[in-house]
Amino acid sequence: MLSAIARHTRRHTVISRSLAARASLSYSAPARADPWPLPHTPEHLEKTRTPTDVPMLPPLERIGESVDKMRARLVYQSRKRGTLESDLLLSTFARDHLAMMSEAEMREYDKLLDEPDWDIYYWATGKRAPPERWEDSVLLQKLAMHAKNEGKVVRKMPALD
Rank of each mutant, 00 (worst) to 15 (best):
residue 33 A to L: 07
residue 107 R to Y: 05
residue 52 T to R: 13
residue 59 P to H: 11
residue 126 G to I: 02
residue 63 I to H: 09
residue 96 D to N: 10
residue 110 D to E: 15
residue 72 A to E: 04
residue 93 F to K: 00
residue 86 S to P: 03
residue 29 A to M: 09
residue 74 L to C: 03
residue 81 R to E: 01
residue 146 H to V: 02
residue 88 L to V: 05
residue 127 K to C: 13
residue 146 H to W: 14
residue 73 R to T: 04
residue 106 M to L: 13
residue 115 E to K: 11
residue 68 D to M: 15
residue 46 E to K: 14
residue 128 R to C: 06
residue 146 H to S: 01
residue 132 E to G: 14
residue 36 W to K: 02
residue 111 K to S: 05
residue 100 M to F: 08
residue 58 P to I: 12
residue 86 S to N: 11
residue 55 P to E: 10
residue 73 R to N: 15
residue 66 S to P: 06
residue 109 Y to W: 05
residue 150 E to L: 11
residue 138 V to P: 00
residue 132 E to F: 02
residue 41 T to P: 09
residue 142 K to R: 13
residue 98 L to C: 10
residue 65 E to F: 04
residue 144 A to W: 03
residue 62 R to A: 07
residue 47 K to L: 15
residue 56 M to R: 05
residue 119 D to K: 03
residue 63 I to D: 13
residue 100 M to S: 15
residue 42 P to V: 12
residue 30 P to S: 04
residue 40 H to V: 12
residue 30 P to C: 15
residue 147 A to V: 07
residue 57 L to I: 09
residue 80 K to T: 05
residue 40 H to T: 11
residue 37 P to T: 12
residue 59 P to W: 12
residue 47 K to D: 09
residue 80 K to N: 13
residue 35 P to L: 03
residue 93 F to G: 01
residue 78 S to N: 14
residue 83 T to I: 13
residue 87 D to R: 04
residue 117 D to L: 05
residue 133 R to D: 13
residue 118 W to S: 13
residue 120 I to N: 00
residue 69 K to A: 15
residue 78 S to Y: 02
residue 95 R to G: 09
residue 65 E to D: 10
residue 153 V to W: 00
